[in-house]
Design a binder for these strands. Structure first.
Lengths: 195, 195
DNA sequence: CGCATGATGGAACGATCGGTGCAAGATGTG
DNA sequence: CACATCTTGCACCGATCGTTCCATCATGCG
């Protein structure tokens, strides 16, 4: 007890993020959140608000942690769209290989549980996924892809990202994940006749 | 009330499957299951056992419903591995396009919630995913793929399946999903020098 | 030093969770 | 018609859910 907080707010938020990440929103009980943050109930509510608010702050914290890594990987210059895809998925594989964080990715786990989230949570999840998609598309254009190819490959790379998270959660080996990522980097654009 | 059941057991199981599918295991409360099946608590427990057992029976019912569709699609003959992939993913797209079932797929939703499942549930989810993988690999071999290519493309097709489910849950359009599936069907085997 | 401020631990709230027990009533068999 | 059988509706169980309240106490300021 004190007049000033006895804990590091950001470190606590990191703990909460890991609880949502591992357990998903529904199974992330307040008890698990207090245990994962090391905080008491009062401190948790006093600092972060209710569960829904804490979840959204955890999503922000997730973006704040990993967005820069993706941005750096995409910042290029890249010799080809495939190089962009490879660089992006390498970040994902590195995150999944990190033994200090839960399996999969918070965004994917949250996306599959969308019906369990309130309106704000759903909106934030969709918005973050859309942001990644746009970021990828931008980088692909910069790497020389035409508009259609950029849109298509961005979508497929995002899809591969999600699939890696699911397979990771299902217990697939990192070799298998790397195989999927490598194959995705070989996807060519469709090169259909543009209308 | 009666001496004989007042409902169709399989229809009720179908309802329960949809509840687990839409809400995921954690958010599939007994109340939602009774509402989704039309049964009372007593009938639900008397017929299917506890929640974990009902979940596993729902998984079986899911496999029993969609496994044959995949088997038929894979039964071929197919002129190339790509044709196998396209046929497989067409089944997935059709299921996702079905407005009478929830978004995504029960198996993917369950896989992302694996930490929330008990040991039997986890095992069954992993087993079912492994079964799909083996089924794909078999069909690819029959379509003329060599061993390495079959293993790799089976894995990637499974991954695409999972990604389609996640994107569907996140609200992506069926056009986007079709784009992802079409691109996956263009994935070539790696054709690395075989050791 | 005395006081206001604010963080903390813990108790307690109503609601909902998964699961069970039981009485009521309809059916099939004699 | 009488009885055993089985299903069903409903109440109820302890446990846990998310959330709030309050007494306690260390701190910063005057």
């Amino acid at each position: 007890m004190a007049g000033r907080k006895q804990f590091d707010v950001d470190e606590a938020l990191r703990g909460a993020m890991h609880v949502f990440w591992r357990w998903g929103y529904s199974e992330a009980s307040i008890d698990r959140l207090t245990e994962g943050t090391g905080l008491g109930r009062s401190s948790l509510y006093g600092t972060f608000g209710d569960k829904s608010t804490l979840f959204r702050k955890s999503l922000q914290r997730y973006a704040q942690t990993y967005h820069p890594l993706y941005e750096q990987a995409l910042s290029g210059p890249h010799p080809s769209p495939s190089a962009v895809v490879a660089a992006y998925l390498r970040v994902t594989l590195n995150r999944i290989a990190d033994p200090t964080v839960p399996d999969g990715c918070l965004l994917t786990v949250s996306a599959t549980q969308i019906p369990a989230l309130d309106a704000e949570g759903q909106a934030m999840v969709r918005e973050m996924i859309g942001g990644l998609r746009a970021m990828l598309e931008q980088a692909l254009l910069a790497a020389g892809a035409d508009e259609q190819e950029a849109a298509e490959v961005a979508l497929c790379t995002l899809a591969t990202n999600k699939s890696l998270a699911v397979l990771s959660r299902a217990g697939f080996s990192s070799d298998d994940l790397a195989t999927v990522a490598a194959a995705a980097a070989r996807i060519p654009g469709s090169h259909f006749a543009s209308p």
